[in-house]
């Protein structure tokens, strides 16, 4: 009992329950994905799932198509979001906070409801559903994720740097390209990541926005899991995980707490 109390009184021991919890519910499941991915149906080690992915054009094509859609979405979000973040960072702080809140507010509505609302909007405007609707829906869903981190970095930027550049004779354009933009790269990087990663893994949204005509990689994974093809599904998940791992490698070095606390 005494030993227990001593253990309990050391604050670092308090992390133990969570460490155990994470070992079971975070680490082990990921290990399981890896084990399942390298197993054939009978449970023996095999590469057959990956062979199948490479040799089956449908899944591989969906994969490449999804990356393309995710890239387009990310680029559009960046083009639309950067000016917005910049304008926000020039506003009075209280006004800016209010507008940022307005940008984040729609995210409190269920993604599926928002997506169905987009479908309704397209119906309402008599626009056809399909690729255009898919990209609109993706941008619509993920734009706030781009604006927020960039705004965060721009807003914290030291204003005297801009003044110094101006004093030293830089034109407004130079101030932007030489000072503001380079300094905002951490925000851009985490914005790209926060848009690219969820877009590449979405499912359900694409079915609704394209009336089941366009399938994204996420949907392929979901279908395989639902149809009991766990091993193949796990292999596809692993492929997605690798892509995401590569993406986050790019950002690891430049991340500067740009995406702290969305609330």
């Amino acid at each position: 009992m005494k030993r227990f109390m001593k253990f309990f009184n050391r604050r670092r021991s308090w992390s133990l329950p969570y460490v155990i919890f994470m070992a079971i519910f975070v680490v082990m499941p990921l290990v399981l994905i890896m084990i399942y991915a390298f197993q054939s149906k009978d449970g023996s080690f095999s590469m057959e799932n990956f062979h199948r992915f490479i040799n089956q054009p449908e899944a591989a094509n969906t994969f490449i198509y999804s990356i393309g859609i995710a890239l387009i979405t990310t680029i559009i979000c960046l083009i639309l979001g950067y000016p917005a973040a910049y304008i926000l960072s020039r506003l009075k702080l209280s006004t800016a906070r209010l507008v940022v809140m307005l940008f984040i507010l729609p995210m409190w509505i269920n993604v599926l409801v928002r997506t169905l609302a987009t479908v309704a909007l397209f119906d309402f405007l008599r626009l056809p559903l399909g690729e255009g609707a898919l990209i609109f829906g993706m941008v619509y869903n993920f734009l706030p994720f781009m604006i927020y981190p960039i705004y965060n970095v721009l807003q914290k930027m030291d204003g005297s740097l801009i003044e110094a550049a101006e004093d030293l004779g830089a034109t407004p354009r130079q101030v932007f390209t030489r000072v503001v933009f380079p300094l905002s790269t951490p925000g851009i990087v985490s914005g790209i990541m926060m848009v690219f990663m969820p877009t590449i893994s979405t499912f359900a949204i694409s079915e609704l926005l394209t009336m089941n005509n366009i399938k994204l990689f996420g949907t392929t994974i979901q279908e395989n899991i639902n149809n009991g093809m766990w091993h193949y599904g796990a292999a596809l998940s692993l492929i997605m995980l690798i892509i995401i791992g590569i993406t986050s490698l790019f950002t690891d070095s430049s991340e500067d707490g740009a995406n702290e606390g969305l609330l």
Binding site: M28, P29, I33, A234, M240
Partner: peptide
């Protein structure tokens, strides 16, 4: 600990879902 704590945040939902599905299975 911080690294493992970040995994569920960075992981796409679908991966978290599937990995837990495999765990429960």
């Amino acid at each position: 600990v911080n690294f493992v704590n970040n995994i569920p945040i960075l992981n796409p939902d679908i991966i978290t879902g599937i990995s837990l599905f495999l765990l429960f299975i």
